[in-house]
Write a protein that binds this DNA or RNA. Structure first.
Length: 510
RNA sequence: GGCGCGUUGGUCAAGGGGUUAAGACGCCUCCCUUUCACGGAGGAGUCACGGGUUCGAUUCCCGUACGUGCUACCA
């Protein structure tokens, strides 16, 4: 590639960051890094009515958590600042005016009511299209129909107006999509989109083209929902900066809800019980918190991984990729055309796989917090690390370290009596009393020694080792779970082991 | 309604004119462990439909169906 690769993610600060948004970031980021290019985050806040307090910071927090660091952005700075479109407001108007000069755009004075009336009229006339386009523009209140003097009077008198692109009829607009290949749009089906709003703010259509040009964007990847408006953007490039300067496009497939139909939304997550946002999102007005993957106990490595392979794979059987591997292996051409349904079960599997590879040191604090929040304190770092190592392969999300490991810290609060009772009798009781005595005298407290004594007594008393093990496990853990029994005993220590057996003996009297 | 995009098991998917159509998740069975998990061995389950083109179509073409997106002075 001749010019430096520069891609951008252009979010609107309107709420939580959706899975699909993160994947769009990810694909942009991967492409940029693979080609030693720049990843830019540009905040598209041109609609002040939808602006939400805190949303912008939240987006950057999410990117930070995911480890997808922008090279240029509102908070990282860069040579093309500002990176917030609201702050770039003055720069858009000249392009809109230029288009009018060139005859590619026009002023439109139609009020909301007039537009509504127009659509109503078209509908009643049985029209197949309700668009503001070449069919009807000459019957609307705009500078195309009005005399120049009339237009001037309206503008000078402060009549609100928008600037619309004038899309010629009967033109074919071909373009290449890096994922979908050669495409072609018929301008007869494209409407005269508003470019500059009455408040002087550009719409997405104008802003994206102007800023992509000004910021020297080389590749523009975005969701599939933008495909229908792509011809407008291409026309704008053609009229304003030249098609040779236009970035290469790629329209990413959508992420769909697991059941039923449609694009995955926050609501589906609430309904089906899984997160849709990267991190917890708190609505400033309702104070309602929408759960995020981070807080649920997902690792960013897993989150990135599962998103990457939703709609992309490298053609091999590999499914587990680190960010570095993704950068190395990613190719936009291998991204699917069709949307993919999100499967939370598979998402959990990815997390489980990443927890198995987890770097204990990095997550001790996080896990400690989880224990603390459940009321377990006095956690010693070294011990916690050993415990985490012992149980990590049975954890799916981070909080599982608590459910899978509480008994390393607290004595059982209840016992799986249903398992013990049927096996419980005088001989068992006798066995455990002997065990206590023998264990008390044991000097080197390690799994091997404990096991040896345990089995020795069983042999002497002619008892079934397996049955006894199960019972001891319930005594120490509370239920039938966890890693090797004697390892558990070793870890919790001699005193605690004896204590727990004695406690249990009181519960299971005879 | 109009326009666009798409369609390989329940889900994610590899593949691609002639294959026993990979693999993963999930599900089921068994082994390991008298525990849970991990691991291992098996199993059920698929090329949306109809026409072409072709000696031969899951693969290419056209329709249909279905899905999905857009159709705002939202992005």
């Amino acid at each position: 590639m001749a010019n430096k690769v520069r891609v951008r993610f252009a979010p609107s600060p309107t709420g939580g960051l959706h899975l699909g948004g993160v994947r769009t970031v990810l694909f942009n980021y991967l492409f940029a890094k693979k080609h030693k290019g720049d990843f830019i985050v540009r905040v598209e806040d041109t609609d002040q009515t939808r602006w939400v307090e805190g949303a912008e910071k939240y987006i950057f927090d999410c990117l930070d958590w995911c480890g997808l660091v922008p090279d240029e952005s509102v908070i990282h700075g860069g040579p093309y600042a500002p990176y917030r479109q609201s702050e770039r407001k003055p720069s858009y108007r000249q392009y809109a005016e230029q288009l009018i000069q060139q005859g590619n755009a026009y002023y439109a004075f139609d009020t909301a009511e007039e537009l509504e009336a127009m659509r109503e009229k078209l509908k009643n006339a049985g029209s197949t299209s309700l668009q503001y386009d070449h069919h009807i523009r000459m019957s609307m209140n705009n500078s195309l129909r009005l005399l120049p003097e009339e237009t001037k009077v309206l503008i000078d008198s402060g009549t609100p107006y928008v600037i619309r692109i004038k899309v010629n009829s009967n033109e074919l607009i071909p373009f290449t999509d890096m994922i979908r290949g050669e495409m072609e749009f018929d301008t007869n089906t494209v409407d005269d989109k508003v470019l500059l709003k009455a408040d002087g703010m550009p719409t997405y259509h104008l802003a994206v083209v102007v800023d992509d040009h000004l910021m020297k964007i080389s590749h523009a990847f975005r969701g599939e929902e933008w495909l229908p408006s792509a011809p407008v953007h291409i026309l704008l490039w053609k009229y304003l900066f030249g098609l040779d300067k236009m970035p290469q496009w790629a329209h990413l497939p959508l992420i769909l809800k697991p059941d039923g139909n449609g694009k995955l939304s926050k609501r589906d997550g609430d309904r089906l019980g899984f997160p849709v946002y990267a991190m917890d999102w708190k609505d400033a007005n309702t104070l309602e918190i929408t759960k995020g993957f981070k807080e649920l106990g997902f690792l960013p490595e897993a989150f990135i991984n599962l998103l990457a392979v939703l709609g992309w794979n490298d053609g091999t059987e590999q499914e587990l990729f680190s960010l570095d591997e993704l950068i190395e292996k990613f190719s936009i051409e291998k991204v699917h055309k069709g949307g993919a349904k999100f499967d939370f079960e598979k998402a959990k599997w990815f997390n489980q796989e990443w927890i198995k590879k987890l770097d204990i040191e990095n997550y001790k604090e996080r896990v400690k917090e989880i224990f603390l929040s459940k009321g377990v304190s006095n956690i010693e770092d070294g011990y916690l690390g050993e415990v985490m190592n012992l149980i990590k392969e049975r954890c799916i999300v981070l909080p599982d370290f608590y459910t899978q490991g509480v008994y390393f810290f607290n004595s059982p609060s209840s016992y799986d009596e249903a398992s013990v009772k049927p096996k419980w009798d005088e001989t068992k009781k006798d066995y455990f009393n002997t065990l206590i005595d023998q264990l008390k005298q044991l000097e080197s407290w390690d799994a091997m020694s404990i096991e040896t004594i345990f089995k020795q007594i069983a042999t002497e008393k002619n008892s079934k080792v397996g049955e006894l093990q199960m019972i001891l496990r319930v005594f120490l853990v509370g239920s039938k779970m966890g890693p090797g029994l004697f390892i558990i005993s070793e870890k919790i220590g001699k005193m605690i082991t004896l204590q727990r057996i004695e406690n249990a003996l009181k519960v299971f009297k005879a």
